[in-house]
Simulated scan of single mutants.
Amino acid sequence: MITIIISALSLAFIGASLRQIFHSLEFEHKIFSIQLFVSIMLLYTIVMVGFGIIYAALIIQGIDVYYEEIPFKYDYWMSEVIRSIYFSGVTLFTVGYGDIIPVGVGKWIAIVEAMIGYTLPAALVAKVWLKHKSER
Rank of each mutant, 00 (worst) to 15 (best):
M1Y: 09
I2T: 08
I5E: 12
I6D: 04
A8E: 14
L9H: 03
A12N: 04
I14N: 13
I14Y: 12
L18H: 14
R19H: 14
Q20L: 13
F22P: 14
S24N: 10
E26F: 12
F27T: 12
F27M: 07
H29W: 11
H29K: 15
H29E: 11
K30R: 10
I31R: 13
I31T: 12
I31V: 15
F32I: 03
L36I: 13
F37C: 04
V38L: 07
S39N: 14
S39Y: 01
I40V: 13
L43C: 02
L43Y: 06
T45G: 05
I46L: 10
I46T: 10
V47E: 08
M48L: 03
G50N: 13
F51T: 13
I53F: 09
A56E: 07
Q61K: 05
G62L: 03
G62W: 13
D64A: 05
V65Y: 05
V65N: 00
Y67Q: 04
E69I: 14
E69S: 07
Y74C: 02
D75H: 10
I82C: 03
Y86P: 08
F87I: 04
L92H: 13
F93Q: 09
Y97H: 02
G98N: 04
G98I: 13
G98D: 06
D99R: 01
I101E: 05
V103A: 09
G104W: 04
W108A: 14
I111Y: 12
V112T: 08
E113V: 07
M115K: 06
Y118Q: 09
T119G: 06
P121A: 03
P121V: 02
A122E: 06
L124V: 12
V125L: 14
V125T: 06
K127R: 11
W129Q: 03
L130N: 14
H132C: 01
H132E: 10
K133L: 08
S134F: 08
